[in-house]
Design a protein around this nucleic acid. Structure first.
Lengths: 204, 204
DNA sequence: CCCCTTTCTTAATCCACCTTAAGATTATTC
DNA sequence: GAATAATCTTAAGGTGGATTAAGAAAGGGG
């Protein structure tokens, strides 16, 4: 019993250590600031297939993945799933539109493996921007990077044929490809699983 | 002569007034800060078809459109143009990837009409982030918004048929549609001008 | 106001990718 | 370790949008 508590406490620390290390790769934090940041986030454990955010809910937290693998996806009118983003350790996942505009989410966020995320509430984060300006800088840079990465993904998606996109996905996200089913990769690439299967056959 | 100079000076003021008004819609600026911001930007006039940024150059400035209409586009291997973004008064245009990573631009930025832009150099802007933190907040919010807007554009582009995308473009950017040739709208939507023409015929 | 360039349309043919449906593998669960 | 669910493959036929080539219309410079 005590033992379990100790292990749990250790995991919390570990998760937050990962977050701090992640931030320190971009910005500097004084020891005091580090404490403030640590206290602003709450750990949340997710089972495989557990849904962190449902369509229709308003997303109120930014989420850092300390461990595991999640996906963000939406369902079209014909109830088909379209994966917008995968995330593994060290990534952030969310329906950002919902988070930023405080409107109901159009996306689901779901764990594909047992996962640990660190959550910070929008209000807490907005306070944190004032208390620890470096955190605001971190997110400015984060969004800049996310924006250009996304722009290039889109340009690729519109200009390049599916085979090329798949090959790029493989080299860029080898670690993810190993961990998620193939039909989800197809969904992320914007093609049907049947077509991906056919592509892969051609590549052999 | 003197008269021309007076008019030119008036236009500079006008342009910077527009910028300040644009910023004030999002953040607050003290009179001192306003002066600092004004002095950080330089006005640039562009003739129709003039290119502001060439592929291969490194983009070193953020650019606010005070007047006119511009486009950002890239050329694929087959020398076909793909429009990534349009911009009119009150928008920002750039090859952000180049600006942020200081690598050679893959996009052109070109005026589609006589235009006026206000430019700020990357170094000046980075200083400005420290001198006027509200400006950093402005750009954090700007990138957040740009990111989600782009994400939704992409989701649309992958999920919806061309006709629907065209109709959405029309309602969302009526003002732009009036000002740019139809084949550029097609390029922005990721379809051929011939197909757009056929679509429009069907809608009548 | 005319000429030349830019832009838009029409129509035939073609291809990347989708749909449907069925069977073959591979995981999970009891 | 059998049963069931989840995932992957194969193959036939369909469709959205591209390509090519022409001509029509609209603009803009001199």
């Amino acid at each position: 019993m005590i033992f379990t508590i100790l292990i749990a406490y250790f995991l919390v620390l570990q998760a937050k250590d990962k977050l701090i290390a992640h931030l320190r790769r971009i910005i500097q934090l004084s020891p005091t600031e580090e404490v403030i940041v640590r206290n602003s986030f709450k750990k949340k454990h997710l089972d495989k297939k557990e849904v962190l955010l449902f369509t229709g809910e308003v997303s109120s937290h930014m989420q850092f993945i300390a461990d595991g693998c999640l996906r963000a996806y939406y369902m079209d009118d014909e109830a088909k799933e379209h994966i917008v983003q995968f995330g593994i350790e060290g990534w952030w996942v969310n329906d950002l539109y919902s988070y930023l505009t405080q409107t109901p989410a159009k996306q689901f966020v779901q764990a594909l493996e047992k996962s640990t995320v660190l959550q910070i509430h929008r209000d807490t984060l907005n306070d944190l921007y004032n208390e620890v300006p470096a955190v605001e800088r971190f997110f400015r840079l984060k969004f800049e990077k996310a924006y250009v990465a996304f722009q290039y993904r889109t340009i690729d998606a519109m200009a390049k044929p599916a085979e090329e996109r798949y090959l790029e996905f493989r080299t860029k996200y080898r670690d993810i490809e190993q961990r998620v089913p193939q039909y989800m990769v197809a969904s992320y690439l914007g093609i049907t699983p049947e077509f991906l299967s056919a592509l892969r056959k051609n590549l052999r």
